[in-house]
Write a protein that binds this DNA or RNA. Structure first.
Length: 130
DNA sequence: CTTATGACGCGCA
DNA sequence: TTGCGCGCCATAA
């Protein structure tokens, strides 16, 4: 176990959430709930809180995190949601009339088993494939 | 110190 | 199918 792993395992909840979001590939998406389940002892709600508080300086692909319905979550205010949809469309992701994307095409499976194991995350399959 | 606020999702009636 | 309760991080005022 190296120093980086130790620091990640000891990191705060939000830092552990950000570490996962950082790994979502371009053109793919993950749900709040899936990320929460991998982090462990974490709720989808908290992942939502973390995304709302994402430091601009981290330059995370925050737009690749959507809700269980396959839709971009509506913000209480501002144009953050429409911006998020544009960013995803720019990565080749299409939305249907109801505003949903296809998890079969764009759902992220998560980091490989070894990465999850070494960094202290739960290794479970995504909930949006069957 | 307390209170408000903000990207969710599950179970149950 | 729709609606409701609830969990409980981090930060600003």
């Amino acid at each position: 176990m190296n120093a980086q792993n130790e620091s990640l395992m000891a990191a705060s909840l939000y830092e552990r959430i950000y570490a996962l979001v950082e790994l979502i590939p371009k053109g793919e998406v993950a749900t709040y709930g899936f990320l929460a389940s991998m982090v462990g002892e974490c709720s989808a709600r908290q992942v939502g809180y973390a995304m709302a508080a994402t430091p601009e300086a981290l330059a995370l692909p925050w737009h690749r995190v959507i809700n269980r319905q396959g839709k971009v979550s509506v913000r209480a205010a501002g144009e953050g949601d429409s911006k998020q949809r544009r960013l995803l469309e720019d990565e080749g992701i299409a939305f249907d009339k109801s505003g949903k994307l296809d998890f079969a095409k764009h759902g992220w499976y998560g980091p490989d088993w070894e990465w999850l194991q070494e960094n202290g995350y739960q290794h479970i399959p995504p909930p949006y494939f069957g």
